[in-house]
């Protein structure tokens, strides 16, 4: 019975793989000429339209900024879901081992540090010292996204790694407070609210949904893109940082 079943499974896999392979060949391997209309338009008009020299930024925060909003939302929902699951797991673990309240960290707990000679403090020292530089670099990538490769998401991820470094490097001093759940959660929620308000603001100024509300105010043509980059960077950085800290088992 069992053997028959595995054979049946193997046949299923073979047939399916064959079908998918044949089915996909035309899409993967055909070669009609690449459509140039959108590229040519962007090359000619992109900078005037959006004010961003980086055309990728121009598209994803200008022409298609609504996609980017939704993308941020995917991240938000994924993080809310992950944190929810983590709390569920904690309650399961709590039932299993009520006596030992164990938190998983990469560095040793305080009472063991002095006794454990072989374990170095290399990780804590290096990450702690490195984190300000990483944070600074993250903000640079975030704010210069309209001119150079980078942008809110990329910068945000670097900021997130800076935050993780902070959390790894901190024992229990002041920086631990910052990397706790609460502050990050607050920045995240505020950034999300701000993002929605900014995207709505065009409606009230007569520029339409996701219209540029700064068009008549600022001299900087890419002002709106810089603003969106900054907000998205903050949002992404705090969200991913929050999730990683939650996965490391740190508690606020």
């Amino acid at each position: 019975m069992m053997g028959k079943r595995t054979l049946w499974h193997k046949i299923q896999i073979l047939v399916t793989m064959g079908a998918v392979a044949v089915f996909l060949i035309p899409v993967f391997l055909f070669g009609s000429p690449w459509p140039m209309a959108a590229r040519d338009y962007l090359e000619a008009e992109g900078v005037q339209d959006s004010g961003a020299v980086n055309l990728v930024s121009a598209i994803y925060l200008g022409y298609r900024s609504f996609d980017t909003l939704l993308e941020t939302i995917v991240l938000l929902v994924a993080i809310l879901g992950t944190l929810g699951l983590m709390t569920q797991i904690e309650t399961i673990l709590g039932k299993e081992q009520k006596t030992t309240s164990k938190t998983i960290t990469f560095s040793l707990s305080d009472d063991k540090r002095s006794s454990h000679v072989l374990r170095t403090h290399l990780l804590e020292v290096v990450t702690g010292k490195l984190s300000p530089i990483v944070l600074l670099f993250g903000f640079y990538v975030m704010l210069y996204g309209h001119l150079s490769p980078g942008g809110g998401f990329q910068g945000g991820v670097i900021v997130a790694s800076g935050i993780i470094f902070l959390s790894l490097g901190s024992g229990l001093d002041a920086s631990a407070k910052f990397s706790g759940y609460k502050a990050l959660g607050r920045i995240e929620a505020a950034a999300f609210l701000l993002l929605i308000v900014v995207s709505m603001s065009g409606i009230f100024l007569g520029k339409g949904f996701f219209g540029n509300p700064l068009e008549s105010v600022t001299v900087l043509p890419a002002g709106f893109i810089i603003l969106l980059n900054a907000i998205i960077g903050l949002k992404v950085g705090t969200s991913i940082g929050l999730m990683c800290i939650a996965m490391m088992g740190r508690k606020a």
Partner: peptide, 20 residues
């Protein structure tokens, strides 16, 4: 990235879409 003197850039649309 349209800095001075840059021509014949690649198509930015796929890059932006794939970023998402």
């Amino acid at each position: 990235i349209l800095s001075d003197g840059i021509e014949r850039v690649v198509d930015p649309v796929p890059q932006a879409l794939m970023l998402t």
